[in-house]
């Protein structure tokens, strides 16, 4: 008799369990018919270096995003040797109107992002002048110091979810790459 009773209880419990799951697993879908813009896209990177009236602008632009036509590099002119520039980077999504300033999103999530600047031109050093909420550099505001004349590349990398703090190299930071552009520059 006891067995039968416990059997009934088990059946009842099982039924209860099943009906709970059935009611939980139903959910509603909603939808409208607009098509999507590429909201997350970065189309344009501008790195502006200023020393008084000496302004050098490095720009990469790929308006149709990944795929399609390749992006284009525009470099306004050579950098001056043995000069200290203050640098500011700006990321835009120009498929939106007005253009969406992605730099602000990066700044808001400063602890999850970091820019890395490397150059093959000897004597160029870049230091990061801004900090996230934990006191680690972000790299939107920078100081670039040139050495003697030379030519080479300046590579800018933006990492999402890097290890922070790191030893200053993008390799050590890990994370996933949101941006990787390489400008051919010359110092005169």
């Amino acid at each position: 008799m006891k067995n039968i009773k416990s059997l009934k209880t088990i059946k009842l419990l099982a039924l209860l369990f099943i009906s709970t799951l059935v009611s939980v697993s139903c959910s509603s879908d909603d939808d409208d018919d607009d098509h999507d813009h590429e909201e997350e896209l970065i189309t344009t990177v501008t790195y502006e270096l200023t020393n008084g009236t000496d302004v050098v602008t490095l720009e990469f632009q790929d308006l149709d995003g990944e795929g399609g036509a390749n992006g284009t590099y525009t470099i306004s002119g050579p950098l001056t040797a043995n000069t200290t520039y203050s640098g500011t980077i700006e990321l835009l999504n120009e498929t939106e109107n007005p253009a969406d300033n992605i730099t602000l999103e990066v700044e808001d999530e400063g602890d999850e992002h970091e820019f890395f600047y490397t150059s093959t031109v000897s004597g160029i050093s870049v230091s990061k002048d801004d900090m996230d909420e934990d006191g680690n550099p972000i790299g939107i505001e920078t100081t670039l110091v040139t050495g003697d004349a030379g030519t080479g590349s300046l590579t800018i990398v933006l990492k999402h979810e890097p290890t922070k703090p790191n030893n200053g190299t993008s390799a050590d930071a890990g994370g996933s790459t949101d941006l990787e552009v390489s400008f051919s520059i010359s110092v005169q």
């Binding site: 879908d29 939808d31 409208d32 607009d34 999507d36 590429e38 909201e39 997350e40």
Partner: peptide
């Protein structure tokens, strides 16, 4: 097939 909008990427 309905590529539900609102994803912010082209489907």
């Amino acid at each position: 097939n309905d590529a539900v909008s609102g994803t912010g990427v082209s489907p």
